[in-house]
């Protein structure tokens, strides 16, 4: 689900940036540090520019200045049970991987309707019900997230297409 999330960050600015463009610098470093990053349980998609920068404080001993910045960002936090669309990244005998934007999701064969079977002889390998449904690399699918595992800097989920209205997007 997408949220407008308020984030507080502390930015250290090297003295060489002290000057008229300081804010730009803070701005830039924050964007570099946050945008597109996985924050453990959510992804920062976009940082909105109307943030609030505190007064700078020199850090004793280093000469850098420390700013506390409050900013708002559009984030995406995937939830268990959320229905999402994604693109199949890889098909293996055990299921297939889906890219949901920045999130990688695995659909195990237990979570694929039983009428779909793996066909490893096809090129590329695919899951198919031998009728109109073919899931192969690049296919758009709709799935439901069943579980999410977060690691530092990484997130992984498993999903299912074994429910109504899930699966291949035509």
């Amino acid at each position: 689900m997408f949220f407008l999330h308020e984030i507080e960050r502390i930015v250290n600015l090297h003295p060489s940036y002290f000057g008229p463009k300081m804010e730009d610098e803070i701005n830039k470093s924050l964007t570099d540090a946050l945008e597109g990053k996985n924050m453990g349980s959510y992804f920062v998609l976009c940082i909105l520019q109307n943030w609030e920068i505190s007064e700078g404080r020199c850090v004793p001993g280093t000469g850098t200045a420390e700013y506390t910045v409050h900013l708002k960002a559009v984030v995406w936090k995937p939830f268990r049970g959320e229905i999402v669309d994604g693109r199949v990244k890889n098909v293996i005998e055990n299921g297939f991987f889906v890219e949901i934007g920045p999130l990688s999701c695995f659909v195990n064969k237990n979570m694929i309707p039983s009428d779909m079977v793996y066909d490893g002889n096809a090129t590329p390998p695919q899951w198919t019900d031998n009728a109109d449904q073919v899931i192969e690399k690049g296919t758009q699918v709709r799935l439901k997230i069943k579980g999410i595992r977060g690691e530092i800097g990484d997130m992984f989920s498993i999903g299912t297409i074994k429910e109504d209205y899930l699966g291949l997007l035509s």
């Binding site: 299921g95 695995f106 195990n108 237990n110 579980g147 498993i158």
Partner: peptide, 21 residues
């Protein structure tokens, strides 16, 4: 790993390490 199927007391899971069931 993460549980993908629950049947009575038998639980199928996909391992994190190599996505095996």
């Amino acid at each position: 790993g993460m549980v993908t199927r629950v049947k009575d007391d038998r639980i199928t899971l996909v391992t994190d390490a190599n996505t095996e069931s």
